[in-house]
Structures are given as C-alpha cells and as structure tokens.
C-alpha cells in the first residue's frame, strides 16, 4: 500500500465513522431537534402541564374566532389540525400577516388544565408553493383547488399543457 492509498483509506474510514456517529446522535436527539409537535404527536406522547412547547399544523378552516378583551387587546381562538387530530389554541396579540385559515401555523405556549393550548407567540408557516396570484385564482375558479385546502400538486399547474387547460375560465399566464 502506497502512502497515498493509506491516506485515502484513513480519510474514508474516518468519514464513515463520523457519518455513523452523527446519524446515531441525530436519531437519539430526535425529540429535541423538532421545532414543533403536531396534534397527533401530542396525543401519542402527552406533555406534562406547565411545560412550554410548540405546536404546529394548519389553522382549521372555519375555526377562527376573533374578539376584543376587556383591555382592548385582540383575542383569537382557533384550532390547529394535522388532518388526523386537532387542538384548540387561544392567543392574545397581533398575528403575523400570513395567519389565515388553511395556512400553516406554529404556536408556542402551554397546555391549560382544560386541554386548550394557551399560546404566548404565534408564527405563520407557509408551504413551499410559489405562484402568481392570477394562477392561484385561475386554479380556484377551475375547481382544481378548494379554498382553505393546500394547493394542488405542482405537476397539475406547473407544466405548459395543464396551464392551457386550466386557463379555460380565465387567462392563466400574466
């Protein structure tokens, strides 16, 4: 074995060991690496009361109730769902611009005794879909996208062929 080959073997073996160690560490600390828990996570692994954590999912369509409390602050109650389960969240304060029904949301706070999640901060979480508003409107008019639902798969609207067929109710390209 030449010196070069020996160096190559050492570096490759060290890389393999490092990769394995990292994979094991990341797996072991899985719970600490997630930024939020979903309502289903919470049902599977209940949190002790009074321990702060984050809950994330979509704002359930039709669940948002806004009111003004005695101090004149905006109070919002809504349900966070992951499709399978949902949890009621209350929050007092200004919400981010992207907070809407059907949109992703991450709330930080604690569980109250009645099972409501009392949030101290609410962050909006948007999905990975980018399209002009005209395309979104056309998809909704054409019935490819139900309001409050996540956008349809990209292959339905990001190809030339479908662009033309979906454009029937109105021009898709801007």
């Amino acid at each position: 074995m030449t010196r070069k080959k020996r160096r190559l073997a050492i570096v490759l073996l060290a890389g393999l060991g490092l990769g394995t160690a990292t994979a094991l560490t990341l797996t072991a600390f899985q719970d600490n690496l997630v930024f939020f828990f979903s309502p289903s996570d919470l049902a599977a692994k209940p949190m002790p009361p009074d321990r702060p954590f984050r809950i994330g999912g979509l704002v359930e369509v039709g669940s948002v109730e806004r009111s003004t409390n005695a101090a004149g602050k905006l109070e919002t109650a809504f349900r966070v769902t992951d499709g399978a389960r949902a949890i009621r969240v209350t929050y007092t304060g200004i919400l981010p611009d992207l907070f809407r029904e059907g949109q992703g949301v991450v709330a930080e706070g604690r569980l109250a005794p009645d099972g409501t999640f009392v949030a101290t901060s609410v962050l909006a979480r948007h999905d990975e879909t980018y399209m002009p508003p005209e395309v979104a409107d056309a998809l909704k008019r054409a019935g490819h996208w139900q309001p409050g639902e996540p956008p349809p798969p990209a292959r339905l609207w990001n190809t030339k062929e479908v662009d033309r067929s979906a454009a029937a109710p109105g021009p898709l390209t801007n």
Binding site: T129, A154, N158, T159
Partner: peptide, 16 residues
C-alpha cells in the same frame, strides 16, 4: 418552521 424544498423535488418544482 422553514418550508421544505421547492425546486429540487421528485415531481415538478413547486415554483411557477
């Protein structure tokens, strides 16, 4: 909190 990949996906990119 960061959204998943938009451009490098198995199906079409989720970017118009």
């Amino acid at each position: 909190l960061h959204q998943p990949a938009s451009v490098t996906r198995f199906d079409a990119p989720a970017v118009h």
